[in-house]
Amino acid sequence: MDREHPNISGSGDFLSLLREQGHLPQPTPLRSAGAPAVEITEGTTILALRFRDGVMVAGDRRATMGNTVVYDRADKVLSIDDCSIMALSGSPANAYEIARMLEISFQHYRRSQLQEMSLDGKLRTLSRLIRENLPMALQGIGAVVPIYATYEEPRADTYARPVGGTGEGAGKIYFYDVLGAQFESVDFCTTGSGSPIIRGALYYLDRWGSLPLAKMTREESLELILKMLETAAEFDTATGGYKPISRIFPQIMSITASGITNVPEIELELLYQAHLPGGSPEGNSEGKGE
């Protein structure tokens, strides 16, 4: 620490601290546009829905590189602190790094400044991280487009309500573009290669279904998520489905007033048996006789 010039401006800013000490990856120089020289691991379906008690965030487990399935148990939904979850689509290497920086930034801020970072501050930090990643994204080798979901207790001193929402619960969903622009979703959000397939279905159900998504119970919401992920897996090769034989389940977390919970695999298995008999199209052949 420089004793002559105590660093006030950077106080509580973990990213500046990393840059100062040379730990932040340097933006790589841009190459001319063209096909990336290396094949990149990517492809995903992630989605976040508001439901009666908060927000559900879910993702499939498949990581692909071109036509190859690299890994079938990737964790794409990560808890960042006690009340926020980030779900990743895009290049996992960069996405995990961003999640890690985000988690430690929030901890560093809370401990050094003796107060929790505001929601706006947290969203801004993520925005900055995505921007830092821009050179990689422009080269086509590391775009990261996360969904950020959080639960904010409605406070008595503000009239803050989820945009366009019903006011029930205080779950909030944000998504980002490659440049770091931040948008708030009303009731649902989905990104990744499988998202165009289910986006329309979600809109249809939210608008003309028997119940708006945000009014669903936990069970109804979970059932819908599993069906959506199966739909995405049916039409998108980069999205993995439910495979009973190897016991691969999607990853689902919920944020409610009581915090973050990971939906256990045993519960998902029962839901599959009850609402999606037969398993997934690709799981079907392997899963016969289960």
């Binding site: 620490m1 973990f14 601290l17 000490q21 730990h23 890690r100 430690i104 560093h108 050094s112």
Partner: peptide, 14 residues
């Protein structure tokens, strides 16, 4: 306090 918090978090990150 700031010095030790910075060191701890940079360690945790690296």
């Amino acid at each position: 306090r700031k010095a030790i918090i910075d060191i701890a978090h940079v360690e945790a990150f690296n």
